[in-house]
Design a protein around this nucleic acid. Structure first.
Length: 235
DNA sequence: GCATTAAGGATAT
DNA sequence: ATATCCTTAATGC
């Protein structure tokens, strides 16, 4: 640990499920196939075989699962230079990848991806770290869904967001939540948007936060932390 | 305690 | 002008 910095192989766990970009893949896009997708179109659909590593050159992707009864489980978002590994050669998968903005993507078949990675050790490392980051995130996610109540997950999300992205101003933490809507928080925490709204108004009434559409100010982080473990809750 | 639905209001495009 | 988001209330499990 030189210069007081952490070694560069440490996995940083995201609060919002967006994983580290791999800029270096831009050098290899000529070895894959370029495609464009209009906003709203599906790149991967449940039940339809698809086997490529998707590299996002521009735009934004939404990855989710859709079961036969039509229920949807949000998984993660992909931003510029991010990857989505979709290796589903059979028709029995439930994955869905949607372009939520106009997108330019590059498809790499697995063998091509492996050929590229075998030539570039640093890229290989970043690729592996990206996958580990995803698996670890979803390990935490499954643990939370298993042992925490929805309210605890929402409070926990807000608490962690505050610690990682909160700006200290006077006696409160300020959170820019313009791009993190309550709907998004509901999807990430596996709760209902109405529940998130109720919990936030509860926190406001308790004087723990002050909120508007763009900013959440957290005044009592300890109280918020205590609520995560709380059994009783009336809101 | 939380999901669901509905309905109205605010805000962004 | 239409979509998206937030809020509140009512109801049910």
């Amino acid at each position: 640990m030189e210069n007081g910095k952490l070694p560069d192989c440490i996995i940083k766990m995201p609060i919002i499920p967006t994983f580290d970009p791999i800029e270096e893949l831009n050098m290899y896009t000529s070895l894959g196939s370029l495609h464009t997708f209009a906003r709203g179109s599906k790149i991967v659909s449940p039940g339809i075989p698809f086997s490529n590593v998707i590299f996002l050159i521009s735009g934004q992707l939404d990855v989710s699962m859709v079961s036969r009864n039509g229920e949807e489980k949000y998984l993660l978002e992909v931003f510029k230079n991010g990857i989505a590994v979709a290796l589903n050669q059979n028709d029995d998968h439930e994955f869905q990848i949607t372009a939520v903005k106009d997108c330019t993507v590059c498809f790499f078949p697995l063998d091509m991806m492996l050929a590229i990675l075998s030539q570039n050790t640093r890229l290989l490392k970043n690729f592996i770290l990206n996958l580990i980051q995803k698996t670890q995130y979803f390990m935490y996610q499954s643990r939370d869904l298993y042992q925490s109540r929805p309210s605890a997950r929402v409070f926990s999300f807000l608490y962690n967001l505050c610690l990682t992205k909160g700006n200290r101003v006077n006696d409160y933490y300020e959170l820019a939540v313009e791009n993190v809507s309550q709907k998004t928080i509901a999807k990430i925490t596996g709760t209902h948007p109405v529940t998130v709204c109720k919990l936030f108004t509860y926190l406001s009434k308790e004087g723990i936060i002050k909120k508007n559409r763009k900013v959440i100010k957290v005044y009592d982080l300890n109280k918020l932390c205590n609520l995560i473990a709380n059994e009783e809750l009336t809101y």
